[in-house]
Structure formats: structure tokens, C-alpha cells
């Protein structure tokens, strides 16, 4: 059996199931106000633009002498777009529904970040350099770790700012 092909297929099916479950659960949950709906749209635009801008250098380097740089920019385009979308949404209060608790999300984000950093750390311990890791497929773990770490920190920073701002 071809395990190299099997894992991505299982991963894809798992992602589809998670998205389906989340969308079914969230069907009745549209408790966002008008400003939040606007913020979410704007965040999607900024995220999309970030991805487009970072894909340009990836395309320039692809197939040349420094193809590994293209991989880095491609990863940055994907994860950078997601990060911009998430950070803009969270910071402007567009991500969470009204009265939604954020603690569970924060813990989950840091948990995912730590798991991904551990994978990167194991490869560093094996003697690979950070350059080798980010230019390889394993770089996905590193970028995922950074993405979820940034999201977790943004949620905490937003909560801290909210508490200061609240009268």
C-alpha cells in the first residue's frame, strides 16, 4: 500500500469531515452584529490580497536556481494570508460570536502551536538547520506552529486590550 499517498487522502477526508461538522453545528449560530459582518468581509479581502502579493515572488523564483525560496514564499503566501485574515478579524472583534468564550480557542491554538513546534524541534535536534526545515515539506509544521501561536497571542492581546478599555 502506498502510505505516501494514503496520509494526504486521510488528512483531506478528516478536514472535510471537520468542516462539515463545524458548518452543521454553526448553522443556527449567526450571532454576529453588523460591524462584525463588515470586519469579517474586510479581513477576508486583506487575507486574499496578502496571499496574492506573496505568491508573486514565489512564481518569480519557481523553476530557477533558488526554487527553495519559491517554496518559502508559497508557504508564506498561504499561511500569511490566513494569519492576516485571523489577526485582523480577532483584533477588530469580528471573529467570535456575541458572548462566545475565547479561552477554549486560546488553549487549542497554543496546543496546536506547541505540537507543530515540537515536530520542528525534533528535526532541529536531528541536526537539520532551520533553513533546511522551512524549505522542505516539513516547513509546514513550522509555519502552522507560527500561525497558531500568532492567533493565540492575538486572542490574548485582544482580551487584555478589552479589559483595559472596558469601563
Amino acid at each position: 500500500m502506498n502510505f505516501t499517498l494514503l496520509f494526504p487522502v486521510i488528512f483531506f477526508i478528516a478536514i472535510v469531515i471537520v468542516i462539515a461538522v463545524l458548518s452543521i453545528k454553526g448553522r443556527g449560530a449567526k450571532d454576529f452584529d453588523e460591524r462584525q459582518a463588515m470586519v469579517r468581509g474586510r479581513a477576508a479581502n486583506f487575507g486574499y490580497l496578502t496571499t496574492l502579493v506573496l505568491l508573486m515572488p514565489a512564481l518569480l523564483f519557481f523553476g530557477g536556481e533558488h526554487t527553495e525560496v519559491a517554496y518559502i514564499f508559497a508557504s508564506l503566501a498561504f499561511f500569511g494570508g490566513l494569519a492576516v485574515n485571523a489577526v485582523y478579524n480577532i483584533w477588530n472583534g469580528g471573529f467570535f460570536q456575541l458572548h462566545q468564550k475565547t479561552s477554549g480557542y486560546t488553549v487549542l491554538c497554543f496546543f496546536i502551536a506547541v505540537l507543530n513546534f515540537l515536530t520542528t524541534g525534533m528535526r532541529l535536534a536531528e541536526g537539520e538547520s532551520i533553513w533546511e526545515i522551512v524549505t522542505d515539506r516539513g516547513g509546514t509544521n513550522f509555519f502552522l506552529g507560527v500561525l497558531f501561536f500568532v492567533i493565540g497571542v492575538t486572542i490574548l492581546a485582544r482580551r487584555w486590550a478589552d479589559r483595559r478599555e472596558e469601563e
Binding site: D33, R35, G93, L98, D162, E166
Partner: peptide, 28 residues
Amino acid sequence: LSQQQLADMVGVSRQTISSIEKGDYNPS
């Protein structure tokens, strides 16, 4: 009323009330 209390009464987030008061957002 606090911002949160007013927000709860009109069904929006506290940040929305804060943004209106700061002039950062024009409500419908």
C-alpha cells in the same frame, strides 16, 4: 449603563458600542 450592558440590550458586541462612541464606525 456600561458599554457591555448597552451592547447586550441592543444585541451587538461591546466593541461595536465602543467603536460608535469613538467615531470609528457609522452604525446602520
